[in-house]
Simulated scan of single mutants.
Amino acid sequence: MPLEGEYAPSTQQWVRDQVERYEATGGREAATLGDTGLPVVIFSTRGARSGRLRKQPLMRVEHEGAYAMVGSQGGAPTDPAWVGNLRTHPDQ
């Protein structure tokens, strides 16, 4: 079920640009993670503090027909914001 509510674009320009282009073209464009060629999906969460709709491109990782979401932020020592959003609103 898609999330509904007021959309709050990312504070990161590249994320805003990618989500906008992906959605405007139905995923025909901006469907890879930067210049890596790795496919992405647009994942929506509800902001942990604001309650507003947030969207972020996540690398699409598939193994034997199952998909995984990895909140590694490229191996950073802290979680990306979407992980906190999901922990606060796991059913949304």
Rank of each mutant, 00 (worst) to 15 (best):
R28A: 08
T32H: 11
P9R: 03
V70S: 05
P80T: 00
L38P: 04
E29Y: 08
V41D: 00
R52W: 02
G65F: 11
L3P: 12
Q18R: 00
T25G: 11
A76N: 11
G47R: 09
G51D: 10
Y7F: 11
Y67H: 03
Y7L: 06
E23D: 15
D35P: 01
P39H: 02
V83T: 03
T45S: 10
S10N: 10
R21C: 12
Y67E: 07
P80E: 15
E6I: 14
R28W: 01
R54V: 05
T45M: 04
T25M: 09
I42Y: 00
Q12G: 00
G27Y: 07
N85S: 05
P39M: 02
V83F: 07
R28F: 01
V40E: 00
P80K: 15
M59C: 03
G75H: 04
G34W: 00
Q56Y: 10
Y7S: 04
R49D: 03
A81E: 09
T25F: 04
S10A: 14
G5F: 08
P2A: 08
Q56C: 12
G34H: 03
D17G: 14
R54S: 04
D79Y: 07
A48W: 05
R49P: 02
A76H: 13
A30W: 12
S44F: 05
L38I: 02
F43K: 10
I42S: 00
L33M: 11
Q73S: 15
N85W: 03
P39Q: 06
L58N: 03
G74Q: 02
P2C: 04
V15Q: 11
V70A: 08
V19P: 12
G5T: 13
Q12L: 15
E29T: 12
T25A: 06
V15C: 04
L33R: 10
L3T: 10
L53V: 09
A76Q: 09
E23L: 14
S50P: 09
P77Q: 10
A30C: 12
G84L: 09
E4I: 00
K55N: 09
V83N: 03
L86M: 08
E23Y: 08
E23N: 14
Q56F: 12
G26Y: 00
G75R: 03
A48R: 06
Q73E: 14
A8G: 02
S10Q: 12
Q12N: 15
A66P: 08
L3E: 12
E6D: 13
Y7G: 05
R87I: 10
G27S: 07
K55A: 03
E20Y: 00
E6A: 13
E62Q: 04
H63D: 01
L38Y: 06
Q13R: 15
A24G: 11
E20M: 02
G27P: 11
T11P: 02
T11G: 14
S10P: 04
E20W: 01
E6T: 14
S72L: 05
W82A: 09
G26L: 06
